[in-house]
Amino acid sequence: MLTLIRAVISRDLRLAMRRQADIVSAMFFFIIVVSLFPLGIGPEADLLRKLAPGVLWVAALLATMLSLPRLFADDHRDGTLEQLALAPQPLGLVVLGKVIAHWLVSGLPLALLAPILGIQFDLSNDALWVLTVSLLIGTPALSGIGAIGAALTLGVRGGGVLLSLLVLPLYIPVLIFGAGAVDATVTGLGPQAHLSLLGALTLGGVFFAPWATAAALRIALE
């Protein structure tokens, strides 16, 4: 079981490394979106500090979503996905491996970039830490839930726009608790409650989402 997951992860990572432009463009999308806000709102430090958690988290949601369509599309096109579905191992585990690989190339770099962007928003050191931790805890849930949407829109007309319509409403709890944790730190309350709930969402999402995704993939492959 673990060898299967590990094999899928290493395969997907190798594929991602051969196409680094995809990862880098998602990162720059994140950076640009975050940088647009101070330009649009104005440079008052107080206002920016208040907006930072929400802005950084929304930008992270959008950047994650940008990379979702590629999660299954290439494998679907060259027939790999059908072979994986025919394999004796449960498809859910394969999906779990792909979700983890997706997180490693999209969620993890976002979390590591976020504190640097947080400095632009004049966040305190504590808030920067909590921001990084909340993104580290929360982004796996984004990859997991997003996989369901990616599987449902596989090979569908106008898949990209449809994907955002399906996935963004489901991202709302993650957004609320993720941004809430940073917000609570900025206002002086502890972030523990928000982080625990975020962790619960991630565990639940990463555990259940692969099975829903596998069911959706089987429908798409029929």
Binding site: T153, V156, R157, G158, G159, L162, L166, P169
Partner: peptide, 8 residues
């Protein structure tokens, strides 16, 4: 989202 997915 449900309606959009079904009509797509």
């Amino acid at each position: 989202g449900f309606i959009a997915l079904q009509s797509a």
